[in-house]
Amino acid sequence: MKRRDEVIVGVFVTVAIVVGVVGTLWLARRGFSKSYPMYAQFDWGNNLKTGQPVELAGVQIGSVDQVTLNPAGYLDVTMEIEKQWKIPEGTSATVQNEGFFGDKSIALHPCRRPQPTVGAEGVVPVTPGQDSTPVCRPNAFLPAGDTIPTGKPAPSMDQLLTRVDSMSGQLSLIVHSLQVELVQKNGVQDIHKTIESTNALLLELHKVAAQQSEALTMTLASIRRSAAALDSAALDTTVHNVAATTRNLQAMTAELQRTSSRLDSVVAQVQHGDGTVSKMLNDPGVYNELRTLLARMDSLTADVKANPKKYFNVKVF
């Protein structure tokens, strides 16, 4: 026996024992990170087992260390939470499904964070939810070894299956009703008839549309023919003449406007001015004098007619 063999065997045995002990502890203690215990109580039948993850807001912070059956109808669960994580006050624990096959984990639902300061730089304001989750108090955490209150549990696979079962029952009832309505009460035939009637109606509509389309086509063709028959040169001349007439009318209108304005000024002068015409129109004295003059003229004329020689004395030679 060589001394070297003893050393090699010693090293081998030591390594094997260290690997065995360290590996077992690593698996059993869920790693070598320091942890502290927390407790929770759940109803029976939650399928909790050692090693299942404990998640705070979806982040794994520990694992289930021990599950004890409490005869009072509960499962007393000990969780090992990694030292680096603290659980805020107001947190509740529920058992949630992981995947479809009965895997479970413990979900810790933390309190709601306080509303961020309005206008704070880089903070997006969040509309507060309608749930009853309490708002976090700053720096308030559950002490190590405390019991986390239990929240409303997520529906289990059995409950989901029960719901699916009831839904499928209702679905089968609907299918049965449809079968009665459509098959037994000749609903399918009615539908067939309705479809046939609709098809016939559509055919009629199609025919009408075809006729209308034909008439429209003919009308358009007639319009096209009429349009083609028009002499474009004559039309141009007419349009030019109309345009010239329009221009003349515009010039005449402008001239009339100017004349009208002049007349307006003349009338204004007649009405308000000091001229002869104005005084003739506006002064009653002038009017009276004119009447008097006219009367005198009448008498003069009569006198002239009566006694022409009094006024005209024609002498020839």
Binding site: T24, L27, A28, R30, G31, K49, T50, G51, Q52, P53, Q60, S63
Partner: peptide, 9 residues
Amino acid sequence: TGLRLTFIP
């Protein structure tokens, strides 16, 4: 996680 799940010494 799977290695540690339901492990007992």
